[in-house]
Design a protein around this nucleic acid. Structure first.
Length: 649
RNA sequence: GCCGGGUUAGCUCAGGGGUAGAGCAAUCGCCUUGUAAGCGAUAGGUCGUCGGUUCAAUUCCGACACCCGGCACCA
């Protein structure tokens, strides 16, 4: 006797094991037709598999959000089937569901091109129309190796070889297509529907390792229905419209050029934005008890050797030296040479090491808007989001081991407050623990992970684990914020470091009069200023809140008779500390409104004959709402109040 | 760094072995204008760089640089 409980709380009894399909049919023929899979105690399973125990069950139909992963995974299989039919000799490898879609990695000597997509999509739709049954089979490992090897599927055979011998292997078959897969899958290809589209072609390494063969990856997006697909394609267009590289140019914020690949030329408006953000942050840091410092760009290799960077990150560092020095270095690499700093921490330890520190000096919070250079691989560069020279909102907290938890909690509060004020209320936290290659002994890592773990518990932060993703010197928290169109960006970080103070011999005199090692907390909130500004641009689609906008207001005249009044208005805005421009050009007001709207100026103060006569302004906001005529003083006061940085009062 | 695609006017893009095209922007002139594009004229290019094939290359081939999409990387 088996008791199955449905989501509405009702229960059904069966005499023996029952498949998801049978369960659905027992509820109703409509549901049976719509059923894609069944969730048994929260785990998605094939409809055809028998349910053998009492369980909470739910029939999954395509309206269920969880169905998407299933559809996408099947879309990947249908893609592989179509490709093997159209391009015989192509080897299959892996093809999972991913965010918004799926991909499949193929091995084939000839190259796919995007021109192949329409043909492949057409064949995929044919396979959907064929409505091939998708059947799960269980094979032994050796059967699977034999089958794939005989078929010339070297990658599959190799993979199956890595599975433990005694494990049985599930195989899914649809038509003539056979793939190794844990499932679950749809009952037949017809259930996939046709709301999918192939999107991208890319190289990808076999088993994600750059030392392995490179495969050809075809990406696609798949949805429950055409409406969802169209909505997604619209979202992609929206993301393109928000692209910070496009808006950066259009809004005259910055540019980049070949002669300084991966670096940023900040234009006056972009630099205004940069400084506004920096000043906002600086005030917050001061209030939170940080002391700002400034350290050299160019530091002797000796320091990087002591810190461990030279050994570990040498190839990402820029060497800089005058010619004589470089000649010496080339002749004898042991010669003295300078390197541009890739991080600020070793320099901060140098400041800490000046003079004797007492336990009374701790915690010592040392902040720097530090310019760092890192030679990022050429393929990694992306606008101002991933650059080779960037400014970190960096700080290091030197503290005792006992203070780690309290300092971590205080940092998390500071960070969340700043994100909130910058318009990012949603933050996800990841705990990254020890990586395979690391500095420091395991007992040290045990203590560091325990301390950070205690902090994250005490701060009551929901978080997920990221095993093996910590920094080489210590575990870290990563803070990911969600933007206005749902994308996630890693910005903040908090890292516990017992290693660097040791390597650079930092110490303080404790209450007991003996020398002790401080712990270092490395922390950043925005991460890279450049990257964060990129995120801000895309988050706001360039329409910054008044306090951040590089040009906050433009005074625009309708007729030249209003020029004098316009100059008075501009003067009043200047006096109020607002960043204002004036537009006296001989153009129609329609033209001016359009131009400043496209430039995303938040406030437009229009003045014509009437306003000049009455000493008023017509205030027009960027979104076109609340157009109103106000006394000059009132308009200025309103804008000034709104332009204050969040939390400034 | 790897795979694929790309680089033509300030921007968006068309073209194509025989002296290079559009729209927008720019400049000049007319228009004094009421909340998202007034009208007219003018100017603007080593077709990414270097090399090869050719009577002739911006066009075909190769190398390099950079950009785009992924992958790998991200202290």
């Amino acid at each position: 006797m088996i008791l199955l409980t449905l989501p509405d709380g009702s229960a059904r009894r069966f005499d023996g094991p029952v498949t998801g399909d049978e369960l659905a049919r027992s509820i109703g023929p409509g549901l049976a037709k719509a059923a894609l899979a069944v969730k048994v105690d929260g785990i998605m399973r094939d409809l055809a598999l028998p349910i053998e125990r009492d369980a909470k069950v739910e029939i999954v139909t395509r309206t269920n959000p969880d169905a998407l992963e299933l559809l996408r995974h099947d879309a990947a299989h249908v893609l592989a089937e179509a490709v093997q039919e159209l391009f015989p000799g192509t080897q299959i490898t892996f093809g999972p569901a991913v965010d918004n879609g799926f991909y499949y990695d193929f091995a084939r000597d000839e190259k796919f091109t995007p021109e192949d997509f329409p043909r492949i999509e057409a064949r995929m739709k044919e396979i959907v129309d064929r409505d091939e049954a998708i059947v799960r089979e269980t094979w032994t490992r050796d059967e699977a190796i034999g089958y794939f090897a005989a078929k010339g599927e070297a990658f599959k055979a190799e993979y199956v070889g890595t599975i433990p011998e005694d494990e049985s292997i599930s195989i899914y078959r649809q038509g003539k297509f056979v793939d190794l897969c844990t499932g679950p899958h749809l009952p037949s290809t017809g259930k996939l529907g046709k709301a999918f589209k192939l999107t991208k072609l890319a190289g990808a390494y076999w088993r994600a390792d750059a030392r392995n063969a490179q495969l050809q990856r075809i990406y696609g997006t798949a949805w429950a229905d055409d409406k969802q697909l169209q909505a997604h394609l619209g979202q992609i267009e929206e993301a393109e419209r928000r692209d910070h590289r496009r808006l950066g140019r259009e809004m005259e914020l910055f540019h980049q050029q070949d002669e300084a690949a991966g670096m940023v030329f900040w234009h006056p408006k972009g630099w205004t934005l940069f400084r506004t953000l920096e000043d906002f942050l600086r005030r917050r840091l001061e209030r939170a008890g940080y002391l700002e410092v400034r350290t050299p760009q160019l530091v002797d290799r000796k320091l990087w050797e002591e810190s461990g960077h030279w050994e570990k990150f040498r190839e990402h560092m820029y060497i800089a030296e005058n010619e004589a020095g470089l000649r010496q270095f080339v002749a004898d690499p042991k010669e003295r040479v300078f390197a541009l700093k890739p991080m600020n921490c070793p320099c901060h330890v140098q400041i800490f090491n000046q003079g004797l520190k007492s336990y009374r000096d701790l915690p010592l919070r040392m902040a720097e808007f530090g310019s760092c250079h890192r030679h990022e691989p050429s393929g990694a560069l992306h606008g101002i989001m991933r650059v080779r020279n960037f400014i970190q909102d960096d700080a290091h907290i030197f503290c005792t081991e006992d203070q780690v938890t309290a300092e971590s909690i205080a940092f998390c509060e500071l960070l969340h407050g700043i994100y909130r004020d910058l318009g990012f209320p949603e933050v996800a936290v990841r705990f990254a623990d020890r990586p395979p290659v690391r500095a420091g002994a395991d007992p040290v890592w045990d203590r560091a992970e325990a301390a950070l773990g205690a902090a994250v518990e005490a701060a009551k932060l929901p978080h997920t684990m990221a095993p093996g993703e910590g920094a080489f010197y210590g575990p870290k928290l990563e803070f990911h914020l969600k933007d206005s169109i749902g994308r996630s960006w890693q910005c903040g970080t908090l890292q516990v470091d017992f290693v660097l103070p040791e390597r650079l011999d930092a110490s303080y005199v404790g209450q007991d009069g003996a020398k002790h090692r401080p712990v270092m907390l490395h922390r950043a909130i925005l991460g890279s200023m450049e990257r964060f500004i990129g995120v801000l641009i895309e988050h706001h689609a360039g329409k910054f809140p008044l306090w951040l906008a590089p040009v906050q207001a433009v005074v625009a005249t309708i007729v030249s008779e209003a020029d004098d009044h316009a100059r008075r208005v501009k003067g009043a805005l200047d006096d109020a500390g607002l960043r204002a421009d004036i537009d006296l050009r001989n153009e129609k007001i329609n033209y001016k409104v359009r131009e400043h709207s496209l430039a995303k100026v938040p406030a437009l103060l229009v003045v014509g004959k009437k306003e000049a006569a009455q000493g008023t302004v017509a205030l027009r906001r960027l979104d076109g709402s609340d157009q109103e005529v106000l006394a000059l003083d009132e308009a200025v006061t309103r804008l000034r109040n709104e332009a204050a940085a969040p939390g400034a009062s």
